[in-house]
Structures are given as structure tokens and as C-alpha cells.
């Protein structure tokens, strides 16, 4: 393992301390619960929005806490959902008279922690609602898994409900808006390399130099198929052939198009993919309303990318256009 790290078990707390110190007072940090939250939260006139999830996906979610985005993030260790205590204590601390919204990516560990945490909060008369994000088209729904995974499309859910909450939307309205985004967002990821969780100390899986994993999960879970790497044009075809028919996105639709880096791919490559995807979509009559090209949801240092499409209506367009202030990303 070749990483900037002291004790691997302290990787997450030391990272969180860095986020806190870099925020210049905009964020607070509670080390007991891996909790990063807005210094001005909770606000009695606003629903508090919390995401838990595992660490290792930065900037998701501790680095997107700020005005118009999340009020708090309480991640577990790298690639592990938070303990119930983090969820319960964070929700209590962020409790607002307007209620608390939990955004949960659809994984067994995250769901279990947030379900139990919500039950404990409700016993304390805290009003909690949950949004379950499941945008990954690589996983087939079946009776025995928890279903599709939540991946980079999660960003759009946070952006939309974050903007609406800032304007005073009720908890019920946020649930409606969030579920509308979830119903219209689809993602596929492709990995070119593996990644190494600090505690594990070795790569999560083996992949040859000339191979790629199509449909990778954000914790290195395998996807649809392992194949030889192909050209960028063919990779964009793989992305679009999986994502477009899934909703389906149709000629005349307007979309937000995200090319998300998985942690170890240059932003130049991401823009290269973006350009190809943009042209191919427009040639299918699908209009790109807004572009997102960067790292939004990563898997440590994994090389690779995901493509997300969100079909937008006037309400979602308005919310995506709202400003957001994430303190550590100020230029």
C-alpha cells in the first residue's frame, strides 16, 4: 500500500479533521460520530438533510456539506455504513421543527443502520423521512438482494432537495422532489483499476492491465462483465447503451449529464468522455441541459468513470440552477 496515512484505522478521523480545519469556521466536527455539519445548523426554518454512507467516496458526502447541499454527514469507516449510534446522535443534534431528511444509498449496511436509527429517533418524537437512492443500472432487481445500488446519481438528489430545503420546503415536499429525482436518474460505472482500502492494505480485487470491469459498484463490487479495454468511443457506447434504454431516455428529453471520476482518472479523460457522450446524446435528440464533469462520488484511488443521466423537468431544472456553497470548494 502506498498512501498518505498514519495508523490506517485513523484514516477517516484524520481526514475529517482536515475537512473541518480547511472550512474556515463554516463547518463543525464531532469526532465521536464522524460528524461533519454546517456551523449554522440546525436551522428551525429549514429541514435538516443528513447523509451517512461509508467513507472513501469523497467528495461524497462530508465534502458536500454546506448551504444548498447537506446539513450533515456522519460516515462510517471506508466502505462501511455508519453505526446506528452515529445516525441517532447526528439526527438528534440536527433536529429541526421542520423535520430531518435521511438520504441513504441502497446498501444492506446503510439501510440497516438508518432504519434502526430512524426507529430510535421516532421514539424520541423526531420527525424523520428517508430517501433511498438506487440509480445503478448494473444491478438487476431480484427478490434476494436489496436491489439496485446507490451511486453517483445521489449527487442530484442532494442538490435538488438541498436547494428546495434552503427555500423553506416542507419535509413532505422534499420527499416528493427527492423521489422524483430518484425515479429519473440512472448511472453506470466502468473501472480500469482496483483500489486499496487503508485498513485492508491490499487491492480490493485483481484486474489485469488490459481489462476493465463494466458495471462496477462504488466499493469495487463486480458489475455486468469483465472485458478487454476498448476505445473511449466504444466505452461511451457501453455507457449509453446501458443507461439510455433503462429509463428510457427518449428523443425530446432534456437531461443533466454527469461524467464522474472514480478517483484515479484525470479530469482531461473525463472531459474527453463528456464530449463524446454529449454529441452522441444530441444525435439521439436528447438535449443536455446542464453538464457535470468532475469527481462527485469516488472509490478511493480507483481509475474509472461513471456516466449519470438525469431527466429534468422545469422544477428540477430550477433546483439544479440554484446556488450551493460548499466551503472547501471555494475558488
Amino acid at each position: 500500500m502506498k498512501k498518505f496515512v498514519n495508523d490506517p484505522r485513523q484514516f477517516v478521523p484524520e481526514m475529517l479533521e482536515g475537512i473541518y480545519l480547511a472550512s474556515g469556521g463554516a463547518l463543525k466536527y464531532e469526532p465521536k460520530y464522524n460528524l461533519i455539519y454546517r456551523a449554522d445548523a440546525p436551522n428551525p426554518n429549514k429541514v435538516s438533510i443528513i447523509q451517512g454512507s461509508g467513507s472513501g467516496h469523497e467528495p461524497a458526502h462530508t465534502m458536500i456539506v454546506g448551504k444548498g447541499m447537506l446539513d450533515a454527514a456522519c460516515p462510517g469507516d471506508v466502505f462501511a455504513g455508519p453505526p446506528v449510534e452515529f445516525v441517532y446522535e447526528t439526527t438528534k443534534l440536527l433536529n429541526s421543527p421542520k423535520g430531518v431528511l435521511h438520504i441513504v444509498n441502497n446498501y444492506t449496511g446503510d439501510r440497516l443502520a438508518f432504519e434502526q436509527g430512524r426507529e430510535m429517533c421516532e421514539a424520541d418524537d423526531i420527525k424523520v423521512e428517508t430517501l433511498l437512492v438506487n440509480d445503478d443500472v448494473a444491478v438487476k432487481d431480484s427478490t434476494w438482494t436489496v436491489g439496485r445500488r446507490g451511486v453517483a446519481g445521489n449527487f442530484f438528489v442532494i442538490k435538488a432537495v438541498g436547494a428546495a430545503a434552503e427555500k423553506g420546503a416542507s419535509l413532505e415536499e422534499l420527499v416528493r422532489i427527492g423521489n422524483d429525482v430518484i425515479a429519473n436518474v440512472r448511472t453506470l460505472g466502468i473501472a480500469l483499476s482496483s483500489c486499496t482500502p487503508p485498513v485492508k492494505g491490499s487491492p480490493l480485487f485483481e484486474i489485469a492491465d488490459d481489462e476493465m470491469e463494466v458495471g462496477i459498484g462504488i466499493h469495487g463490487e463486480p458489475g455486468r462483465q469483465r472485458t478487454k479495454i476498448v476505445s473511449a468511443n466504444e466505452i461511451v457506447d457501453l455507457f449509453l447503451n446501458a443507461v439510455v434504454p433503462d429509463l428510457p431516455f427518449k428523443s425530446g428529453d432534456e437531461v443533466a449529464l454527469m461524467i464522474n471520476g472514480l478517483g484515479g482518472t484525470t479530469i482531461g479523460e473525463l472531459y474527453l468522455l463528456y464530449g463524446i457522450a454529449h454529441k452522441k446524446l444530441e444525435s439521439q435528440g436528447i438535449k443536455v441541459f446542464r453538464s457535470y464533469v468532475n469527481e462527485y462520488c469516488t472509490s478511493l484511488e480507483m481509475a474509472g468513470a461513471s456516466l449519470t443521466l438525469l431527466k429534468v423537468n422545469n422544477e428540477i431544472k430550477g433546483l439544479l440552477n440554484e446556488p450551493a456553497e460548499v466551503s472547501i470548494r471555494v475558488f
Binding site: 461509508g54 462510517g76 469507516d77 462501511a80 455504513g81 455508519p82 453505526p83 446506528v84 449510534e85 452515529f86 441517532y88 444492506t108 449496511g109 440497516l112 443502520a113 432504519e115 434502526q116
Partner: peptide, 15 residues
Amino acid sequence: ISSKVGGSSGPIWGT
């Protein structure tokens, strides 16, 4: 156990 253990093990072993 359910408070301190993260991932799916906490809720499962705790329950």
C-alpha cells in the same frame, strides 16, 4: 453492539 458496530454487522449482531 448496535450502537458501536458499523456496516451491516452492528444491526444484525445487535438485534
